[in-house]
Structure formats: C-alpha cells, structure tokens
Design a protein around this nucleic acid. Sequence first.
DNA 1: GCTAGAATGCCCGAATTGGACGTTTTAGCG
DNA 2: CGCTAAAACGTCCAATTCGGGCATTCTAGC
Lengths: 295, 295
Amino acid sequence: MKASLSPRDLAQAVGVSESSLKRWADSGRLNVSRTAGGHRRIAVNEAVRFIRDAELSVVRPDLLGLPTADTPRAVRGPTEASEALTELLLAGDTQAATGMMVRLYLGGAPLTELFDGPIRHAMHHIGELWHHSAEGVFIEHRATDGAIAVVNQLRAIAGFPGADPESTQRPCAVGGAPAGDAYTIASLMCATVAAEAGWNAVNLGANTPLDSLRHAVERHQPKLVWLSGSVPEAWPGREALAEFAQDLARHGARLVVGGQALPESDADPAGAHRLESMAQFAELLREQARDANAA
Amino acid sequence: MKASLSPRDLAQAVGVSESSLKRWADSGRLNVSRTAGGHRRIAVNEAVRFIRDAELSVVRPDLLGLPTADTPRAVRGPTEASEALTELLLAGDTQAATGMMVRLYLGGAPLTELFDGPIRHAMHHIGELWHHSAEGVFIEHRATDGAIAVVNQLRAIAGFPGADPESTQRPCAVGGAPAGDAYTIASLMCATVAAEAGWNAVNLGANTPLDSLRHAVERHQPKLVWLSGSVPEAWPGREALAEFAQDLARHGARLVVGGQALPESDADPAGAHRLESMAQFAELLREQARDANAA
DNA sequence: GCTAGAATGCCCGAATTGGACGTTTTAGCG
DNA sequence: CGCTAAAACGTCCAATTCGGGCATTCTAGC
C-alpha cells in the first residue's frame, strides 16, 4: 500500500501503457497532482474513481494496495454476490469477503447496489442467528466483524477524493443509530454513501441519544440528518421523533429515517422522510446537493 | 507553533523524500536559512509560500502546525503524534486522522507503537468525555467513529499482506470483549496486531459472552484467546475467568487478558496472562508462533 | 473496401526522485 | 559541562518519470 500512486503503478494495475495513462492525465480525465519537479502523483481514491468511470478492469489489484484474495467461486454481479458474501461472512473469511466486494466496486457496481444487495442480504441472515444459541452468537459476531471490515474498506476507497474541495463547499450530513441500538453497520453505510456522494459525512455511530445528535446539528449545521434503526425496541416514539424533526427544521436540517426497526405501520413518520434503501438515500443526497448548489 | 522546520518535517508534510527537499533548497526554489553548523532551517511562512507556489498537496498538515493554532510543536514520531491524533479526532476530522496514521505506519512506525501511543492516548481522552453531557457524548461518538475508521484502515493495509506465508500453516487466535462491554476498538486492535504478526485472527468484537467464545474455540482450535475489557462493570468475575481459562487449556489454547477494565489489584488473574500493552501482545504472539513452528 | 481521425504502445535523451553512505551537527539528559 | 543518540550534512547512484516523436491499431463513416 502506498500513499499515492505513480503513473506506472496505475498503468500496470489496469494493464495499459504508461503513455496512455499520461495522456489521460493530461487530458483531464484523470486528476493528478504534481511534485515540485513535475512528476505526476495519483491519489488512491482518485484512481478508484477513474477506474470505475472509465470502466477499466483491474488486472493487478495488489499494486493499488487493495485486497486481492480470490473468491472461491466466480461472481459476476451484485445479485449473485449476495449468496457468496453471506457464505464468506458466515465462514469467517473476512479477507475473501473484502476482496470480492472491492472487486465488484471497482468493476463499476454502485455502492448502493452493494449495500442494498449483498450486505443487506448477509446482515439479514446473520441477524437471525443470535436468537438461537451461544454458537449462533459466535457466528453472528464473527460475521458482523467481517461485514464492518468490508464496509470500512469501501468507505476508505469510495470516499470522495480532494478533487475539487474548494470549488463548492461540501454539504454536511450527520447521523447515527438511536440510543439502545448497538448496530453500527447501518449508520456506517449511510456515512459511506454520503461521503461518496460528495458530502461531508459525520457519523456518530450506534447508541447515540437524540440529544447528542442535537449537539452535532448545532455544531455542524448539516443539511441532512439520518437516523438508522436496527432494533425496534430502541426506536424512538412517534412524539419524540416528531419533536426531533421540528428541532432539526429550525436548524435548516431535514430528517431521514430508515432501517428494520421502523414499524411497518408508520408509512411516513411525522416530519421525517422514511427511506427503504440506500439507493433512495443516495438519490435524496443528490437532489439535496443540487438544490443547495442552485440556491 | 514551531518557529522553523527541519527538512525532514517539511518533506514528510508534503510527502516527498528528504533528498528531494534538500535539492529544492539547494536549487533556490525553496529559501532556507542555515544554522552555524550548516543545517537547513525553513521558516513556516516560507514553507507555506513554497507549497502554494509549487502547487504541492500537503498530506500531513499537522507537521506544519497549521490546523490548530495552539498546537505547541510539530509532530515527528508516534510518541509526539498522540496530541495531534487526539486533536484531529476531537475535531471530527476523520480523514486527516486516518491519513496521518497511515503515513506513520507506511513510514515504518510499528503498529504496536501507534496503538500504544496515539490511539491509546486519544481513546483515553475521548473516554472521559461522555460522563459529562450530551455534547460530550456527541464528541465522543464522533471521535470513536473516527478512531474505528483509523484502526480498520490500518487493519486493511497491515493485516492483509499479499506476502502470505503459505509454507507454514498460520496459527489461529480468537478474541473479543466480554458481554456488556460495548467497546469495539480494543479487540479490533488485538485482531489487527495478530493479523500483522501472521496469525489468522478471528475477532468476535464487543459484547461477546464467554460461552460464545467457547464455541469459537471449539470451531477454530486457536492457540491463543484474547479478552479485552474496557468496562470494569462488565469484566468477568475471578472464578468465571479461571474456569474459562481452564476450558481453554483443555483445548490447548492460552488466555491473555488486558484493558482498562481489569482490576489493578489482580496482577495475574488465575490461569490468564495479563498484558499491559499491544507491544507485549505482539511479543507474546511472536513467541507463541515460534514455539508452534518449532513443535 | 477504403480512409481519415483518434487512440494506443513504444522509444529516446534529459530531468527528477528516493535511498544509501560515512561524517558532522544538534539536542536532550545526567 | 560533557556525553550520547538522533538528526542532518554532502555526495553519490540506480531507478523512475518527463515530454515528445513516431509507428501501429482501432473505429467510424462513406
């Protein structure tokens, strides 16, 4: 793993000549920084973005410092990956799981598709285990650790690079899971999706009281606040949620909620926008960012 | 803030070699003054001018002491990086924190030094916040998310080396935090250290009952089991621990314990080996692996 | 089938980079 | 105040990258 890549590194990683890479950089398709002597330096995030954008295939992932573990069986797309990821996580093979997901992401699969598909599928299966036995708890914990590692890896490479940080101020989003809800993954995925969409994402993680979220809102002045619930018992009551949404509205922030914890009956909680998938969340982020820029 | 910088400070701040920096200084592109003995000294404002003039990207702003005006001095090594990491995490700048720690690791700092130094320092400061107020909880959650991202990133680049020692079967280690202990970081660091040491590390994460660890031991037949406690109230009683250690011994596994949760009086819990630092853990892992290979 | 334009890969001399080396200076400490 | 470890010195060299020229391949479009 290197802090930044040289043209040769990236060229060999994607299997093209160094000349082509230099031309792409000179034409502006690939953002590069320069050393004082004029040598090109490429950030890993930017390399990942470019690979996806140009639909290149990576022949040497190791040159990018990314996991290279082979998946036991060939996986073509995110849909087929659901079963495979579940198996790998249940088997405790974190490395293979990470490698597979990173490969899919590099291959162009949208982050939301990976989250709504394989990760959601796997977490759903895993979540049912811990009811049964101490052994179920063991497998669930092992798999959850792996899933968190996968999402964190994606978060590290999908985060928007410093391509144009100053041109437009990034909008800010804040979120977490409510108090009593110990599941970190859902909120982590929200933060990752927001970061990929170019937002400044502040994740407070699991078990965050609404009062703490209020302080985060005061500090960061976000345009958006997400609240992701995985445990029904910990989900705030309708009144508390409505009051929270009103507080946010006073700060110019919008509340979005989602997750398994939400009561199905409550199609649209007062003052909060209910989302059913990461794809919907990403879409909302795009809209909101567009509106903010237009204003 | 430091009055002037050494060539190494500035070189690391902009992510180039010391040689290049010296050459730039000698060519006149960067103005330097000299000490009586001939060592180069770079004024901070000259460093800033040069960076902007050459359009360089600053990869470690902390070395310039710029982000926080009250930073007393530049940060050079892992020992002095503690303050910088704490500030970055408290400020919520996850990206800068991750970048700094990755740089230090790539620069040759041992993983254990980063964990025992900056991470431990930061977590200690952060851990005291949540007692006070909802705002403290907010800052603590935000900082903890950042710290977890940092450790996960280090785990990704340190724990999945392509150089896989296929010749000898990797020894296995299993671990987690006890039931009722919700802190994931300590166990995550253990897993990372073990993975870097060439072990097959299985992390069950926070809030893991001893019975679930027993199942993990049956399944993985580890040589080593770690139990890291951050919450004193959740730490198992002396008898339960002794019994657990005996169970492990029957499976040929050794129990090591550590963390803030351990009662200070209990210098050496029955049947368990108490460790005070990640460095000790790493040393134990090396010894154990050597013994296993010799056998 | 043919051709013009675009994209790609390879080659070159010049310039840049990063690491190694033994020696000298600095800074921290008793 | 002297001592010692760490840091910086100057110098060298192999490896890498630069920019540009040139031939080849690919792709439309006629």
